[in-house]
Amino acid sequence: MSEGVDEAGWDVEPGDEIEPVVQAVARLLRVCREAAGLTVAELAEALGYGEDMIRKIERGARIPRPEFLDRADTLLRARGHLRAFMEDMRRARYPKKVRDLADLEERAVEMLLYGSHNIHGLLQTPEYARALFGMRQPALSEDVMERETAARMARKAVFDRDPAPTLSFVQEQVTLERPYGGKMVLRRQLEHLLEVAQLRNVTLQIMPTRQEENAGASGLVEVLKFADGTAIGRSDGAFNGRPVSNPKDLRILELRYGMIRAQALTPRASQKFIEQALGRL
């Protein structure tokens, strides 16, 4: 796969709710191309993409990147009609499950996040995330791996929000020690954790393996709180792992998270712990 083809976009997931929008973009691109008097081959050459890729986009089988629409709009003199879909395509290129999660994270004013197996997705570097996707079985294609990694990185926009949400992370010690992707990937990941820990709206704590009591022994705990007073949460060890939003169930998750945070190292001690882990690499 050439670099240009790879940058054109990702395949549409059958049945995705965004499919009708992708189809509308496909029809518009074809109309604009024909109005400009260009063949598919001529458009492909002018934009630097493969002819087959342009055909897939015009069939609605491929989600074009926003950058593609921007260039095509200029070349075809579409007067901004193609550019009008750039934000839709920016969201459409990510899997539906990721879009739903990103929507929740974008609305949240406070997040309580405990990870026991891997570094939490919002804290991951691109290299670390790609290493995780690379270990999936059955193996993911390069196209899917790129799409999943890009989607995970897009979620990190929560750190740039203004006003910023309050973020509390607790990570098990073992997640800082697994060298997924190799030692250099782990080193950069730990360095990134130290960078994030400096943010005023972020609290990062480590649960040491030596801790004899751990309220997080049942696994992941996440609670997202919203400005209207509502919240949603989930835990591997409660409610069969299903998301919950009623106050009674949320109190249970908040109690569990509160105990986890109390049992973990303090934020300052946690930063020192990460620095020491870096020194051992």
Rank of each mutant, 00 (worst) to 15 (best):
M1H: 06
M1F: 12
E3R: 13
G4Q: 13
V5I: 05
V5P: 00
D6L: 08
E7Y: 08
E7Q: 13
E7M: 13
P14A: 15
P14M: 14
P14N: 11
D16Q: 01
I18N: 02
I18M: 15
V21D: 12
V22E: 03
Q23C: 07
A24Y: 12
R30V: 03
A35E: 13
A35R: 13
T39W: 14
T39P: 00
E42S: 13
A44N: 07
A44P: 01
L47W: 04
L47Y: 12
Y49T: 04
G50W: 15
E51K: 14
D52I: 14
R55Y: 10
K56V: 03
I57R: 02
E58H: 06
G60R: 10
A61C: 01
A61K: 10
I63Y: 01
I63H: 06
R65W: 10
E67Q: 05
D70S: 13
D70K: 10
A72K: 03
R83M: 09
F85C: 00
D88K: 10
R90G: 08
A92N: 05
R93M: 14
P95C: 13
P95L: 12
K97M: 07
R99Y: 13
D100S: 10
D103T: 13
E106I: 02
R107H: 08
A108E: 00
E110S: 15
M111D: 01
M111W: 02
Y114A: 00
G115C: 07
G121R: 11
L122C: 04
L122W: 10
T125W: 03
R130K: 03
L132E: 02
F133T: 02
F133C: 04
F133V: 02
F133G: 03
D143A: 14
E146L: 09
R147D: 06
R147C: 12
E148A: 14
T149D: 08
A154V: 03
V158N: 02
F159L: 07
F159G: 02
F159H: 06
D160H: 04
R161Y: 14
R161V: 07
P163W: 15
S168C: 11
S168T: 10
F169M: 03
Q173M: 12
E177G: 01
V185I: 08
E191S: 09
E191Y: 13
L194S: 01
A197R: 03
L199T: 00
N201Y: 06
N201H: 15
T203V: 08
Q205S: 05
I206V: 15
M207S: 03
P208C: 11
P208R: 05
R210H: 09
Q211R: 15
E213C: 04
G216E: 02
A217S: 14
E222H: 11
E222K: 09
K225H: 09
F226Y: 13
G233R: 05
G233W: 08
S235W: 06
G237H: 09
F239M: 00
G241K: 07
P247Y: 12
K248G: 02
D249R: 05
R251S: 10
I252V: 14
E254F: 06
R256V: 10
M259F: 15
I260L: 11
I260H: 11
R261T: 01
R261M: 06
Q263E: 15
A264K: 09
P267E: 10
S270Y: 12
Q271A: 14
K272D: 06
K272H: 08
Q276V: 09
L278K: 09
L278W: 12
G279V: 10
R280T: 15
R280G: 04
